[in-house]
């Protein structure tokens, strides 16, 4: 298969899995990378075609007739021509490489230039195997915490500060920008400028242990107004339970094992090791992009996390069926 065929082959298919691919850019950074990829494919495709053509013609010359006996030739008259061609070939490679290195350098400058436009600060921390996400509250500057769902206003450059609580992870939302490793002891940051509204998916890209495969997160790019509304909602403490079952659920969550690791702001559950649950029901997925948010999945996740995500540090909590229902009822109301 050729690089040229490669190009024709992958582009139409890019749309069918569009939420996590650099081929459907939705941000300045990814768009730059996509153009560079196309340039690379063209240049490399042409070079590959030249090599294949040269090889095919060399083999075609076999038809000149079988070698007389098996005697080697020591005189090679065509070498003078080939020698000149070698210089031309080297020149072609040099020109191609200069083109690509130059384009790559220019793109690097463009990625760096985003720093001047930073308008929003987000802190993302990698944990085995989920993402802690924190925004500044525009009213008082305190940090608002959420998990596994990143919201970004369209057209604004956000600086995402990356930190790790344990091992090396890598933050990657291919539709918006390239990846940046999340390394303990290093203050890495990445600038992203989303340009298209929609849901995208990010995933940890550096091997980080047992559940590296299920350490994903959702990214929602929305209008600035929607974003402000969402942030205001996230800043609020958890809503009070609406019915008796939910009240019972709250009792269990705040007094039982859940509170050891999880926080629900506005209640006595203030554990920090696990994801913040204050507005868990407003998120699209649970367990770091593993399961869709719905009541069945919530209950299943609480009862059997090890079956759904073997090795996860979320504990299996054994509850009476009635209590399990109540907890799911309560968490389902944490919008």
């Amino acid at each position: 298969m050729t690089q040229k065929g490669h190009l024709a082959f992958l582009l139409p298919l890019a749309s069918c899995a569009g939420a996590q691919t650099p081929l459907a850019p939705a941000g300045d950074q990814a768009a730059g990378q996509y153009s560079l990829l196309l340039l690379m494919l063209w240049v490399c495709g042409i070079l590959y075609m030249l090599v294949l053509g040269f090889l095919a013609m060399g083999l075609w010359r076999l038809r000149r007739g079988a070698p007389a006996g098996n005697e080697p030739t020591l005189e090679t008259p065509s070498d003078a021509v080939l020698g000149k061609t070698l210089w031309i070939w080297a020149a072609i490679i040099v020109v191609g490489l200069l083109l690509l290195a130059g384009a790559s350098f220019l793109l690097e400058r463009r990625l760096a230039a985003a720093e001047a436009r930073e308008a929003l600060l987000v802190r993302v921390s990698g944990h085995q195997w989920w993402w802690r996400i924190a925004y500044r509250d525009p009213r008082n500057g305190s940090w608002i915490e959420t998990a596994n769902e990143l919201h970004l206003p369209v057209g604004t450059t956000a600086r995402i500060e990356l930190g790790s609580a344990d091992v090396i992870h890598s933050f990657w939302v291919p539709n918006v920008a390239g990846k940046m490793d999340v390394i303990p002891g290093r203050a890495n940051a990445i600038d992203v400028t989303p340009r298209r509204i929609g849901w995208f998916r990010g995933q940890c890209a550096e091997f980080c242990g047992l559940q590296h495969a299920k350490m994903a997160f959702d990214v929602k790019v929305e209008t600035p107004a929607q974003f402000a509304g969402w942030l205001a909602l996230q800043a609020r403490p958890a809503p009070a339970p609406e019915d008796a079952a939910a009240l019972r659920g709250m009792e269990i969550v705040t007094r039982g094992a859940c509170a050891m690791c999880h926080s629900v702001r506005g209640t006595s559950a203030r554990g920090r090791p696990g994801p913040d649950l204050t507005h868990v029901a407003s998120r699209r997925m649970i367990a770091a992009g593993t399961l869709a948010m719905n009541r069945g999945n919530l209950q299943g996740w609480i009862a059997q996390p090890q079956a759904l995500k073997p090795g996860t540090l979320m504990l299996p909590v054994t509850l009476e069926p009635r209590d399990a229902n109540a907890v799911a009822q309560y968490l389902g109301q944490l919008k």
Partner: peptide, 9 residues
């Protein structure tokens, strides 16, 4: 290419 590799690596 450093900037493209951020998507590929």
């Amino acid at each position: 290419s450093a900037p493209l590799d951020l998507q590929l690596t």
